[in-house]
Nucleic acid binder design. Structure first.
Lengths: 225, 225
DNA sequence: TATATATTGTGATGCATATCACAAAATAAT
DNA sequence: ATTATTTTGTGATATGCATCACAATATATA
């Protein structure tokens, strides 16, 4: 209910396609919140009534598997969250949680639908997003199930560096348990493999701080064992 | 270029939302083909220029993983195929192959986009589809990676019965190798587990013919080991 | 009908990794 | 500062399942 969405500096490609009219509609129909690390944004099992726009910060999408919690993917701002679960089901089918401090805007589903109806370009971009996500999803799943742990961990580290932090040096926003849930392993294996990578001089591990020392090797590990 | 799409008896929920105008546009801009079991519909690595409508038949979506081919999901008619890969990437990121005789309509991407632009209800349904798929995708991946083989095989069999064939008795449209690719195992394990289920009286296996004898047990196996 | 090719069945072996069981740090709470 | 709690490190053990190696069918091809 606060900021003018027209001047929001955190627009996605899709959002930048919106008409001023639709942006004004958003301005008067959204609820802006500042969240702390660890705060829940969307909770699996509860009613889904809002689409969420992640203005700033980093979030994890996670789902309760048959035995353990699985982190489906990491998402950084700016990005829409919860479209699949809000459109596809009355009840949230997954959770989203902030892993850093974050700012989010809750948007009423009806309003969002309205905006979709009235902005072809926006809709196109959103559909494009869905497509990319589904493709990524296919690849990720194939990799996870076929690669060994070292390969998956290398993948994850490369992902953090290239997609999330855009830097070869970063601090992991996850505990080892969470990292394990992201990579489908046990906490212990995460610890061990991280130590291995460090010993081999591929990365430097200092607590949760990770620095990639030899990216080529890391890519090789990602591809092979 | 043949049949009148207005009278097509194989409409999806989305398609039934289309204006006559759009249906006529489809009529004059689609290529209808009869396919035989095993024929390729979409091929990973080639240029994607068409959306495909599966009028009749059964298809598998499969993707080349890092080591082996993985069957992402089975799709039966009526359904659109290749939206993610056609919208999301210039080059097909996965393959689709008929596993039974099938009829398909190739629709030019531009025409499809046009139809999206001009039919809000249709677009809504398509988006709904995307959402459901993404949710399914999350669940499937979590299950596959966390469950043991018996659980995954039980899942797959239940899926065939409930979602694909709508009958507890059906003939598997896949070889054991393919079944293994669907369930993320080895061909040998498929053979063994199928024999186990048969021995336990849960299903009756006669070649590729499967009859579910004890559905409750099968569901139990799906949930636990 | 005969021959080649693909599909399936089944044992033996090995290996990656989960699990268990603690100890040691590091963080948070008092 | 001190205690409690969460996170991490590391060995030992167990196990699910892939892989290998053939035999036995079934299916396609000549």
């Amino acid at each position: 209910m606060q900021n003018d969405c027209r001047n929001c500096p955190f627009k996605t490609k899709a959002t930048s396609m919106l008409s001023d009219c639709s942006l004004d509609q958003l301005t008067s129909n959204h609820l802006e919140l500042k969240l702390k690390k660890g705060d829940s944004i969307i909770k699996q099992g509860t009613y889904s009534t809002n689409v969420v726009f992640l203005r700033t910060g980093l979030a994890k999408i996670h789902i309760a598997g048959p035995y353990t919690e699985q982190i489906v993917k990491m998402v950084n701002a700016p990005s829409y969250l919860g479209l699949p679960t809000t459109f596809g089901s009355k009840i949230n089918q997954y959770s989203v949680t902030a892993v850093s401090d974050a700012e989010v805007c809750f948007i009423d589903l009806g309003v969002f639908q309205n905006i979709l109806d009235e902005n072809k370009e926006f809709t196109r971009e959103i559909i494009q997003e869905f497509c990319k996500n589904e493709l990524e999803s296919f690849h990720r799943c194939a990799n996870r199930t076929q690669k060994l742990i070292r390969g998956n961990m290398a993948d994850a580290i490369l992902d953090f560096a290239d997609k999330i932090f855009k830097s070869d040096s970063f601090t992991l926003p996850l505990s080892q348990i969470e990292f394990a849930n992201l990579v489908d392993t046990s906490r212990e294996s995460v610890s061990r493999v991280l130590a291995e990578f460090d010993k081999d001089g591929i990365i430097k591990v200092t607590g949760r701080q990770i620095e990639i020392l030899n990216k080529k090797s890391l890519i090789l590990v990602s591809q092979n064992g």
